[in-house]
Design a binder for these strands. Structure first.
Lengths: 237, 237
DNA sequence: CGTATGATTGAAGGGTCTCAAAATAGGTGG
DNA sequence: CCACCTATTTTGAGACCCTTCAATCATACG
């Protein structure tokens, strides 16, 4: 099922069997993208929204002199641009990191879906608000943490999110990033990202090599990152 | 009308007269708060959402050693915690800056409102997505701009938003902030905020004194801030 | 084997923080 | 209306974190 990971670990259980079928049937075509491809350009009018089925996608904004800032990273089960449904055009760019498979949801289909299934509508809304909650945490991370804390926090968040959709045990996961991508997510330079990674490695907290993250000391990672997963609204608590 | 500023300057014209009346009638009680009062504590279950009618409100998160990071500033016409409708509990704190008046919208009333008026529902969703768009811009600001750019960007955004609801000409507006508040919004220290303000004053770009912002050179302000108001989704363009 | 890309390290400079003190403004009571 | 008290703003000096610029190293790939 294309949407089988949607809200997995995030109160997916609040969806009825009927609603899940309705969501699945609302999916239009499935599109594939290669790695590192631009998927949506900022300013574009969007007429459908993409549910990420397979692969990693990021959203980013560009500064005047070309420096890029990641504003979101998406993993399977995430709606990548559901906010485009209400906003109509995007204020940022969307690109694939890996090879990617997305299910397209035409906006006029979504409109009807929400009318027919108000509870499903609220869960779709909820999913866009999860993005906003993550945005807030990223603001906190950039505003209040030093470089080490930022990188640690990023690892902690992605690990936890992948765990929720069954793609990680929380400590070992794939992250198809270059060090420069990590830098763009954390508001630091690639050179400094490298030094931060060395320190995290030397302190035996986490290693990152070849797109693979291995958390050696999850306790220390969360401490350094000031990480608490509450803002991810996991099902259990 | 309590909701007369809702989405003002942001496609409010997409709301029909009937929908506006329905929104107005959905408002429950009106509550007043004093200046600098905590309004919602993180983790609280929220059963209603507040539309800001008068005054300024901020949302923030606290780090381990008490440093605070603002994640949003709200001006009249903003729904302060509409995201609580779908999230149920908040991941951050909400506090007043000035004396404040809010209109309360009980969540069960909102549920019905959305079923009866799907288009209004989409506009409410839209309004929470505007918050998310601003979050993204804050991420960019913190990740990619230096201290001067961050402060300039903050001024530019608030000026523009106040202009949209008729509370500023874009260059002169009230901002009931201490320098330390500005610091908490921009991820810098209060001491450095002071130095940045001096530089912006000396470069004849903007002055901030006694809670009043006067932009002397809007062109320079936007340049320093790398500011473009597209992410605020203003009606005209 | 040569080339391109990404990772790693070094040295120097700059931006921001910290700590501390002084100046100013605002509010209150005499 | 002045005197005092407190909160806020302003300034200085030194330390530290991160950036910049450059060079070297490792790796993958034609």
């Amino acid at each position: 099922m294309l949407s089988s990971k949607f809200l997995m670990g995030r109160h997916r259980e609040d969806l009825s069997a009927i609603e899940i079928v309705a969501l699945e049937e609302a999916a239009g075509s499935v599109t594939s993208y290669g790695a590192r491809e631009e998927m949506v350009h900022h300013g574009d009018e969007v007429t459908h929204s993409m549910l990420l089925v397979e692969g990693y996608v990021c959203r980013y904004m560009d500064g005047l002199d070309g420096e890029r800032q990641l504003v979101a990273l998406h993993v399977p089960g995430d709606f990548v641009d559901l906010h485009g449904f209400a906003l109509r055009r995007l204020d940022h760019d969307v690109a694939s990191l890996t090879e990617v498979k997305v299910a397209n949801y035409p906006h006029n289909t979504l409109s009807q879906l929400i009318i027919d299934h108000p509870n499903l509508g609220r869960m779709l809304w909820f999913s866009t608000l999860l993005d906003a909650a993550m945005h807030r945490e990223w603001i906190f991370r950039l505003g209040r943490l030093g470089a080490i804390g930022r990188v640690a926090h990023f690892f902690a968040e992605i690990g936890r999110r992948l765990q929720m959709v069954g793609l990680s045990d929380g400590c070992n996961f794939s992250l198809p990033f270059h060090q420069s991508d990590l830098a763009e997510a954390c508001g630091i330079t690639a050179v400094h990202a490298n030094r931060v990674l060395r320190e995290l490695r030397e302190r035996k907290i986490v290693t990152f090599k070849g797109g693979q993250v291995v958390v050696a000391d999850i306790r220390a990672l969360c401490t350094v990152a000031e990480f608490d997963d509450g803002y991810l609204y996991p099902s259990a608590h």
